[in-house]
Design a protein around this nucleic acid. Structure first.
Length: 480
RNA sequence: GCUCCCUUCGUCUAGUGGUUAGGACACCGCCCUCUCACGGCGGUAACGCGGAUUCGAAUUCCGCAGGGAGCGCCA
């Protein structure tokens, strides 16, 4: 029996002329929330594997849970993927649009005796479960309607898959190696609810089959579903794909990652000032490695990534290392791209960047002293906005410093060229001529110019703020 | 409870019978220095436990302990 026999309506993705031996991976999130860190890593692995093999990466939205799926979540997932630049070749496909196809396969299975109608009430199932638990057994359906004649039954029913009752399901997981399950452990799972809608384990199977998925890369919380899915696939006459179950990501305390660990949503990392390339690098390296290498460009990732090098143990998310990577990319990454993300943060803080130094110069000056773009934005206000002189600041300007400040101001005002070198020279001269060490002059000047005690080197700070504003701010602190 | 999975520095990891168990983040110290940083140099720190195999085990096998996931008309 061939799978093609079941095809009456042909979904559009089947009309593809692509060669079937090519690798086809899919990321299949359910839209019940944002794109979280774990999902993002799974998506990244799927994407990397497809890119590495010159295969196809497909996005499929598993929205069969009508209760919990929302359009907002779909959008959040799409936005997250876009920010990370994980582009897909096909999709997004929506399972809710494949209901006819699922129904068709269910009917076919019913006709062929591969599935059956089950009239057991929820109450009976509930009772069964309780009894089994009490007897220290694994709760599972007892196959009542499979073994009794139900032909003259009336009322609501679900459709169950006739799982093999004996033997084992064995598969070679690309991450874990050989995995074996006894069929006796499995039960006859519901493939259609009493309202006729199909369930997860069934829709996954049909779609993976129809979409000719060759490699299912997913979280290992699905490993228990795999033998069931393989059984259905076999009943349909399909060849099961290769599986790769990647371990979960844990919070910093080793517990399951959740909101109390901080950011979980990918887009929240954007809000907090991370660069997508830093997150991607971090996520790739979390649970996977290539020798001792820590920094990977996207191209290197594509080149070196391999399913076999994925670790079997779950990994704890470590924000410190992500911060380090983020700073690394702020210092060394593509200036244009960083400036674009940086501008986004400046805008969020309502800092007007239309006048003042170029973002590129600010990034160059700030990258080595900030860990995130958000922090960088917060600490770059004084390049674009006036500094408010506070009483606390005044304490840093004793009257005996006024002569040196005056000299400095006048020399700066007369400077032939507003360059880092000239400014630096002027600073040194002004300090020296009043018998001061550079530090004695530089720090008060820093406070006058930035309102704080921390900034890039004073010459660069002055250069970026600009001559007029520098002179103006020096005057301001000398007045008071 | 049942089934399955996992276990190298605090964290991410390298390691596939013989290594002073390597790297990275974090941490500590020193150097550099106009602040904060960056950078450079150095340091602390790990094979869960118990058996077995072997001349030799982080590496193989068996127990144990600990951790995780699944067991829905959720996905």
């Amino acid at each position: 029996m061939q799978g093609g026999d079941l095809t009456v309506t042909i979904p559009p993705f089947l009309l593809s002329t692509k060669v079937s031996s090519m690798v086809r991976t899919r990321f299949a999130p359910s839209p019940t929330g944002y794109l979280h860190i774990g999902g993002a890593r799974t998506a990244l692995y799927c994407w990397l594997y497809a890119r590495k093999t010159k295969g196809t990466f497909i996005l499929r939205i598993e929205d069969t849970d009508l209760e919990r799926s929302t359009p907002e979540s779909v959008q959040a997932i799409l936005d997250g993927m876009e920010w990370l630049n994980l582009n897909y070749d096909e999709g997004p496909f929506y399972q809710t649009k494949h209901f006819d196809r699922y129904k068709e396969v269910i009917n076919q299975m019913l006709e062929e005796g591969k599935a059956y109608r089950c009239y057991c009430s929820k109450e009976r199932l509930e009772k069964l479960r309780e009894e089994q638990m009490a007897n220290k057994q694994k709760p599972r359906y007892d196959g009542f309607c499979r073994h009794h004649d139900t032909s003259n039954k009336e009322g609501p029913y679900v459709v169950r898959f006739k799982n093999p009752e004996e033997g084992v399901v064995e598969f070679e997981d690309l991450v874990r190696g050989k995995v074996v399950f006894a069929n006796a452990e499995l039960d006859d799972l519901i493939i259609a609810r009493s309202d006729g809608t199909p369930t997860y384990n069934f829709t996954v199977v049909v779609d993976d089959w129809d979409m000719k998925i060759t490699h299912v890369i997913r979280g290992d919380d699905h490993i228990n579903n795999t033998p069931r899915q393989i059984n259905i696939l076999r009943a349909l006459g399909a060849t099961p794909p290769a599986y790769a179950h990647v371990p979960m990501i844990l919070g910093s305390d080793g517990k399951r990652l959740s909101k109390r660990h901080g950011a979980v949503s990918v887009l929240q990392y954007r809000e907090e000032g991370f660069l997508p390339e830093a997150l991607l690098n971090y996520l790739a390296r979390l649970g996977w490695s290539h020798g001792d290498q820590e920094i990977f460009s996207i191209d290197e990732l594509i080149q070196y990534f391999d399913l076999h090098n994925i670790n079997r143990a779950p990994a704890a998310f470590n924000q410190e290392k992500l911060l380090w990577l983020n700073q690394h990319y702020m210092k060394t990454g593509d200036p244009l791209h960083i400036a674009k993300e940086f501008a986004w943060h400046m805008q969020k803080l309502e800092i007007d960047i239309s006048e003042g130094p170029s973002l590129h110069d600010v990034i160059k000056a700030q990258a080595e002293r900030t860990k995130t773009l958000k922090e960088m934005a917060e600490r770059s206000r004084y390049f674009y906005e006036d500094v408010h002189v506070t009483d606390e600041m005044k304490a840093h300007f004793p009257t005996d410093l006024v002569p040196a400040l005056t000299t400095l101001r006048d020399k700066l005002a007369d400077l032939s060229e507003w360059s880092k070198e000239k400014i630096h020279e002027t600073l040194n001269q002004a300090a020296e001529s009043h018998g001061l060490k550079l530090g004695k002059l530089a720090q008060p000047v820093r406070i006058a110019l930035t309102g704080g005690t921390v900034s890039p080197p004073i010459d660069i700070t002055m250069l970026l703020i600009g001559r007029d504003r520098v002179v103006e701010r020096l005057n301001k602190v000398m007045d008071v």
